[in-house]
Simulated scan of single mutants.
Amino acid sequence: MDILINVVLPLSLAIIMLSLGVGLTFADFGRVLRMPKAFAIGAIAQIVLLPIAAYATVRAFGLGAEIAVGVMLISFCPGGVTSNMISRLARGDVALSVSLTAVISLASIVTVPILAAWAVVRFMGSNAPEVSVTDLAIAMFVITTLPVLLGVLFRHFAPGLAIRIDPILTRLATALFILIVVAALAGNWGTFVENLPKLGPALIALNVVLLILGLALARGASLMWDQAKTISIETGVQNATLGVTMAALISGQSEGFSTIALPSAVYGITMYLVAAPFVIWFRNR
């Protein structure tokens, strides 16, 4: 299990982020300037509304300290390649989805460590492990930001090869994601079963609220329907692998996944189930 935590987990996240980068071009970042309003609404929904909704959920369901930190962690994570694929299925604005994922994934090197350190102290108090924002930021850069940048550069200098290997990397990223989720659940099965009566409804409720909040915010800002659908999905679908990895970095455990990782692992499953009815509705409207 220590090899899984210390080697396989960070390597898997790096490969997942590399697959994200290979699917990006520099134009995806520049597009932000051409759709500033839609991007700003999407960024506000992800960076501001999402953690607020998660905090309200934690308080409403009375979740324990470590579980509460885990719920907050998943709310700090950006959307991943999954959100881009779901946006495509929902017939949303895929270009906006890709741009949001690209920029917010890079911004997460700053936002996630700071917010994670706050959440640990806020909910765990005197039992909180020592968290170094600098160390978290460095780790985030190595296993998330750097692979994305390398992927973008690879796509820029070898576009033909990048396009050919993109589907392979995507399938590999999906398989690694499933492995991480299953391992996290198996390693904390007793805690998972014990907390499921509260954790399951809490995460499902949070997911539903996020999808609705993102949609309502976008429509309230008079964005086009395809943009509103995308912002809804980007708000409700998160990079669960990053949440599990951050939990491992924060807890410092080398032999097994910590309880903090459970919410990300569970959310990584339930978000697809919750998003499915929304996608069907989006496709048919």
Rank of each mutant, 00 (worst) to 15 (best):
E130N: 14
L63G: 03
G151Y: 05
L18W: 10
L4N: 11
G160L: 06
V182A: 14
R31W: 15
M72V: 03
L196W: 01
L249D: 09
V208K: 05
A107P: 03
M246Y: 14
T259D: 08
T245I: 11
T144F: 12
I178P: 10
G200H: 05
S83H: 00
F39W: 09
A261T: 07
L49K: 08
W225C: 11
I280M: 12
D2M: 15
G160W: 00
S97M: 00
R155H: 11
G200P: 13
T259L: 00
L33H: 09
I16C: 12
V103A: 00
V209T: 02
I44R: 07
A261R: 02
Q227G: 05
V237N: 04
V98W: 00
D166L: 11
G70Q: 11
K229I: 15
G200S: 11
G236V: 03
L213R: 08
F154K: 04
L153R: 11
A137Y: 07
A221G: 01
L199P: 05
S12E: 06
S264H: 04
A107N: 02
G190Y: 01
V193F: 03
A275M: 08
H156A: 14
P36Q: 02
P51W: 01
S108V: 03
P159H: 09
F278C: 06
A45S: 15
L223I: 01
A117Y: 10
E194K: 15
K198R: 14
V32N: 06
A107H: 09
L223K: 00
E66A: 10
S251A: 14
N195A: 15
R283G: 00
W189H: 12
